[in-house]
Design a binder for these strands. Sequence first.
DNA 1: CGAAATCACTAACGCGCGTTAGTGACGTCA
DNA 2: TGACGTCACTAACGCGCGTTAGTGATTTCG
Lengths: 347, 347
Amino acid sequence: MGHKTEEVRMAGGTARSGRRATSADVAREAGVSRSTVSFVLNGTKGQTIPEPTRQRVLEAAARLRYAPSAEARTLSRGRSDVVLLYQPPQLPMTADMGALVEFLAAEFAEAGLTAVTHPWSRKPDGDVLTAITPVAVIAWDLPDDAVTAMRHNGVRAVISLTAESDPVAQWIWGTRENGIARLQVERLLSAGHRRLGYARPHDARLAEASEMRLKALRQACAAHGLPAPVAVSIPGDGEGARPAADAVAAWRELVPAVTGVCAHDDVAALSVLAGLREHGLAAPADLAVIGAGDSPAARLAVPPLTMVAVDMLVTARHLVAAVTSLLDGRPVPAGPEVTQVIERHSV
Amino acid sequence: MGHKTEEVRMAGGTARSGRRATSADVAREAGVSRSTVSFVLNGTKGQTIPEPTRQRVLEAAARLRYAPSAEARTLSRGRSDVVLLYQPPQLPMTADMGALVEFLAAEFAEAGLTAVTHPWSRKPDGDVLTAITPVAVIAWDLPDDAVTAMRHNGVRAVISLTAESDPVAQWIWGTRENGIARLQVERLLSAGHRRLGYARPHDARLAEASEMRLKALRQACAAHGLPAPVAVSIPGDGEGARPAADAVAAWRELVPAVTGVCAHDDVAALSVLAGLREHGLAAPADLAVIGAGDSPAARLAVPPLTMVAVDMLVTARHLVAAVTSLLDGRPVPAGPEVTQVIERHSV
DNA sequence: CGAAATCACTAACGCGCGTTAGTGACGTCA
DNA sequence: TGACGTCACTAACGCGCGTTAGTGATTTCG
């Protein structure tokens, strides 16, 4: 049975009706072969294309609104340009995270890559990998076999934020989280507070992140000769501020009492403020509060919240640098400092 | 020149070293042809495969950790399973939006589709379409030629939230936004407020959305015989609540004075509260405030904010139903009501 | 003036898959 | 016994692309 797949020049006419234009359509329209089209459109070096031909191809492509098929391209090239941000429930979307993702998309685009997020919550949805085949994946908690499976399936860079050996994870926990904890502790210490509390996040999905933060806070306290911080959960369900009031009471009734608290995030900080109000108390006089991750709500609180902010743009740049380094086989560069105290009136 | 691309059974051995397993590897491993592997793995109907063979193939696939290549599959099938949420700067990420996206991903997965987001801010990044080739796209503002270009390039369902003719857009503005506006107005009216204000969002990116909301509020007011709401911007830049204080003063100095305000979102509502405090005033006694889009910060405000909440799960379900309908060539079903007043203490 | 190099292209492979058109072996029915 | 199905498969096409190995025509060079 004869086999002549292509190069069967059609009599006349332009593109096949209906379907999207292919490079073959462009070739036909320009009166050249598909190879030539490919050479022109990709600027393949080692090929000499005279200007008139080049223009003919370019014009034909424009006329047909030709856009190369991503599938075919990655299939033939062997790799795609997609970086998957496999967004886990442990990192719920906040305005801060949204900004990070936005910056990531922009910075990855700069590097010739396309960032894309896929959130999952109920169950890790491995099908994305099948549906997308990314070059790189940034995720929260990937089981070892999942990582090897990805590698095996063509993912060239895998970043797992809970893997001990992952250089990006090391930066996240070693520099970013430690930076938050250290600045919180030092700020409270500089205001004279030596017995500190930790307000856990109200969102149950943040349990793991909370544990990491607590560890960092303990280290920071120890480094300054302070006792370990007293962690208290503030359940955020339901209405009213009673649970937060209980938390505040627990801190104040200790001997010696907790006089300054580090909040996991803005919502935890707001909860502490609400708890204080319930007792007719206020920050910073009765209890100093410092939060983490800036947000409009923190600025508009009563009193305006002193926060440790994380620079999301710098964070994004570092992540992109890490991924591109991994893709090029270079070592991941050292991570920058990204934390900074925003002074307001709750300490 | 001979052309025999495949079916060249290799002597012995298992998969080619290194690279990811292909269906040809599975075929070799199971001692059958690639076609048989495809039949088994896809449960192709009209093909009879005896159980022992089926098992051999299944086991071989498992042993090699075979996962089909998305590119090849969509290339051959002619369409992908990816729905692109082309997230615009006009819809900045908030906790609410994050929840919506999460629900969308889950609901689309249920429908056999894979939802993926790509945020852009600086410039619309059309390259995603080249890098992804989705079946469907949900976007904010697509120029007409972009829509036709997408259609032309194989996107089978395009939803543009600013297109007059788009049934989903009609629902968003006709049901969702109108629902928010109507409930806000009616709630304030039932508390006796007849001269209303509108607190524009502090985020400049929300300018367009703000305009739409204002239109809906005007309609709602007109429907109840009220004068048009007095819109005031509350710039959120910088620290302090002075701008918000000016806004509050502007409302109160009117004759007759504005006594109830509809805030665009939670941040706008918080800003109004901050402005009131600046004057030594408070809601609801001096000015009633009702916000939109619930959030922890709204619950923890002083006083806790009365809000109009939007059910994001129901919203997600409707969007998924709309997309699947479009894909199947069915008409988009009528959209549900998704708004509801959350009673607290600012009205 | 003939060999070599360059130019301007084209044919065809292979990426990995879904799918259709077979193709022998075996069983069934008249 | 032969026509006819069904069974259990396999060969091969085509999806759209990047890329390599050519191939005639022209130019360059000794």
